[in-house]
Amino acid sequence: MASEPTTPGPDERPPAAPGEPGGAGRLDRARRGGRTAELYAAAILGLVIVGLLIAWVVANREQVRVDWLVGSTQAALALVIFVAAALGWLLGIATSFAIRRRVRHRREGRG
């Protein structure tokens, strides 16, 4: 069986030559340029966040006393704050899942 040539649909235009006006080459370059700008912006934002995090750790490097129910410990203030923030974030996520599950369970029971 010989395959018959098909004509391109409205969305499937053959690529235009580099010098042709209104060709796909210019549009493709613009799309790639936009994506590149997004990547550079993300990289710069990441570097700014890392720099701020380093500055925060340096500013909070002093040792503090942490009292437990039984005993106490010395730890860097930055570490204490980071651990407290991470635990709070994880507990917030767990609470959100528990509430969502309970609400979903109640809806299924009524319907």
Results as ranks from 00 to 15, higher is better:
A41W: 05
P15G: 09
P15S: 10
R106K: 12
G111W: 12
N60K: 04
R35A: 14
V70Y: 12
A30R: 13
G88T: 08
L77K: 15
Y40Q: 11
V103I: 13
A43G: 05
L90V: 09
G51P: 02
S72P: 02
A76Q: 15
G92I: 00
G25N: 11
W56H: 15
V50M: 11
L69E: 12
E108C: 03
L39H: 15
I49M: 07
A84N: 02
A55F: 04
T7N: 12
D11W: 14
W89M: 08
A43N: 08
G33C: 08
A78K: 04
L47V: 05
R65E: 11
P8F: 04
L45V: 03
R26T: 06
E4I: 05
P5E: 07
I93D: 04
R104N: 10
V64R: 03
L69N: 11
R35E: 15
I54R: 10
T36S: 15
G23R: 00
A85R: 04
A43I: 04
F97I: 14
T6K: 15
A24P: 08
T36Q: 14
R13Y: 04
L79C: 04
R29L: 11
A43S: 10
A78I: 03
G71E: 06
Q74R: 15
A41G: 02
V50W: 13
L39G: 06
I99Y: 05
W89G: 05
G9K: 13
F82N: 09
Q63C: 00
P15Q: 10
L79P: 01
G46H: 09
L87V: 03
E12S: 12
A59C: 01
L47K: 08
L52D: 04
P10L: 06
I93V: 12
V80I: 02
T95R: 12
I54N: 05
R110A: 00
L69W: 13
G22I: 00
A75H: 10
L91N: 13
A94G: 01
G25T: 10
L90E: 07
A59V: 01
Q63D: 09
A76M: 11
A86E: 08
D28C: 09
R106D: 09
I49Y: 07
A84K: 00
A16I: 00
L77F: 14
